[in-house]
Amino acid sequence: MTRQLNTPMDRGYSLVMGTLAVIGLGILIVPVIIVLLSSFTSSTVLKFPPPGFSLRWYEALLDPVRSRHVHVALSNSLWVALSATALAAILATLAALALNRVSRPSARALEAGFLSPLILPGLAFGLATLMYFSILGFRPSLNLLIAGHIVVIAPFIFRTTLASLTQLDPALHESSASLGAGRLYTFRRITLPIIAPGIAAGAFLAFVASMDNVPVSLFLSNARTNMLPIRMWGMMETTLDVRVAAMSGALIVVVLVLMIVMDRLTNLTRRMSM
């Protein structure tokens, strides 16, 4: 006897699970498609389906006068994300090298500490940094935003680097050392090439997380140091500005391209599901 014939109950199972899976996938993907299509609307209000198609909102978004604030926010966000990702990559890689294969309880506690910003409510941390910096007498600046973002995004790089270090065979280190190679040389020629895809995948996630960060930017940015998500939130709250849809469309395309490139380079999809 091999497989049972499908009973009505089994068919019910397949029907229920199949329907739920289709609805679930719809919830994931339909909003992205709707934003993309709405961004090409010719109308002045956000309506789906659009009454006609045009590029007017993309033009409005590129207009240096009308969309100056958006451009400033975008360049601020890019600068903060690039700086924070670069610094976090160095700090998190060093920390991952230190804690790799150390099983002392203190090391496990430190590891949990480094990962904790992933779980802690970001908004509480954002407010905490605002209070902290204001008591120290610092005025809002992009450097403070970089410091706040490093804490929030370093765990992404720490996690993927730690995961790629577990795939590193310790025998490689020993043979390199026994052949007379110095520790730095071994790191550069053996360790780094093996863990580089892990660092890159983590850095990509960290960059996206920084560009999209709301909880920290909400408290640390002001009119001068405005950040893109905060600006877009403002445009959405006051008037349902259709430029937000155009901005969304542009960002979705950028993320899509980055995702495909990163997947080719680092097998990102596999790393993210680890």
């Binding site: 934003v35 789906f48 709301v214 877009m232 901005m247 969304s248 979705i252 993210m272």
Partner: peptide
């Protein structure tokens, strides 16, 4: 599986503001 992973990852990498904006339209 590749296609499904892509569908799962795309919203994760899309700005939270954009996703919220989309839900208003829906």
């Amino acid at each position: 599986q590749r296609l499904l992973l892509f569908i799962v990852l795309l919203p994760l990498l899309t700005s939270v503001v954009i996703r919220t904006f989309a839900w208003i339209a829906i």
